[in-house]
Design a protein around this nucleic acid. Sequence first.
DNA 1: CCTCTCTCGATACAGTGTATTGATTTATAC
DNA 2: GTATAAATCAATACACTGTATCGAGAGAGG
Lengths: 234, 234
Amino acid sequence: MTDSPLIWERPEPTERRRPSPLSRERIVRAAIDLADADGLDAVSLRKVAGALDAGPMRLYRYVDTKDELLTLMVDAAYAEVPAPAGATWDAVLRSIATGIRGVALRHEWFAELLGGRPHLGPATLAHGEASLTALRSTGLDDLGTVTGALAALNVYVIGAVRKEVAERRAQRASGLDQRQWQHATAPYLLRMFATGDYPAMEEWVHDAPHLQADEVFELGLTYLLEGIRSSLGT
Amino acid sequence: MTDSPLIWERPEPTERRRPSPLSRERIVRAAIDLADADGLDAVSLRKVAGALDAGPMRLYRYVDTKDELLTLMVDAAYAEVPAPAGATWDAVLRSIATGIRGVALRHEWFAELLGGRPHLGPATLAHGEASLTALRSTGLDDLGTVTGALAALNVYVIGAVRKEVAERRAQRASGLDQRQWQHATAPYLLRMFATGDYPAMEEWVHDAPHLQADEVFELGLTYLLEGIRSSLGT
DNA sequence: CCTCTCTCGATACAGTGTATTGATTTATAC
DNA sequence: GTATAAATCAATACACTGTATCGAGAGAGG
């Protein structure tokens, strides 16, 4: 096991050559621009290097592997999450969750990467630190509950954002607007329902209120926060 | 837009050639075996075909694209989720969640795929149907709450399982046992804490109780279910 | 038996991440 | 200021990937 296996501790190499000074930050930014524009699949080392007028192998001085680049992208995205604000602990948690969701909606690749591997970058840790201090300063001081609450919230956001983005992408891929999407999958579902195998779902699709994505997100968040509160006895 | 764009409606081709009768099921099973053994990255059309003593192009008669194969794998995994059991609606929801988690721990690739794109296969729908009927039959009949509860639960499980499996894999990749893992990342975290930038996390790491993965999962689940209950006024 | 349709395997293409290597540039020592 | 050592880069190469294309061959229908 080497001494500094994690990219966060590996010192960034200093540039000696003149033309096109490179840096980890420039590389990550280029990768993010690519991912924003054409999706995560468009992020290849060749294309990132090309966007920086460099050969592909040049990047390997700054990054050991492509996964490391993705990890750096995730940390950069975490840095965009606004600092949590709120007077009560649940308001703080809510602002954290919606902040992450906001970033994920701006950078859909972030949602794809979230939770895919452990992230321990400085911005991610700073984000955790901010969440923790905000929580402690607003009255939640049972450590067991804090642990569980943060974990549950984290995990809820990961899943919610991932699913929401996945649906958005599928919708976009199958034609352009929402009407076309509904026309593409609705008939399929209707045929499935016509088999009679899914009576409860059929009824539910008919009668259930059609909620917007952000409403669903907020609703689940409310459940979770309410559950945490009630387990506090507060 | 073609008439049957979804693989679930495309009829399975019938075999005419004698040697090595193929079928969607055999292909999916081979892919699952590969993924179980060597991870999702080991699932390539060439390898799957090789495992079936066939040329790679042969699979394209049964599957239009690799994504379709992955979708079929997900549906097959959903079919392994045991039917929910329980007397009360929250017991039912809990059994659903732990059932999915169990499958994901047996098939880690399932966790990687979960939520990555919309899944509407028959087993997935059947699973939704079972959840719905179980819910309705145990007293939860407000449709708005049912919708929100199912969505929130679904999303929680997706995120929780994804994160848990990601951590497990990272742990396994960095040496073999848990002690080695802690020895690999703990020093890094300590050095980060030594900067003084993360006092709350430092304290928290010291004092917080160390929970097992399944305890964390159950705890978050409890919060969520409790929140749903309290929003029912029951 | 001939024909026609369907299916298969081979080949090919554009792309991927990355190991290797030889040249070229830079820093260091005298 | 020059010789030497070290560092860095671009090119090449490798083993893959998913999949389009297409010629050959097998099965069925007449």
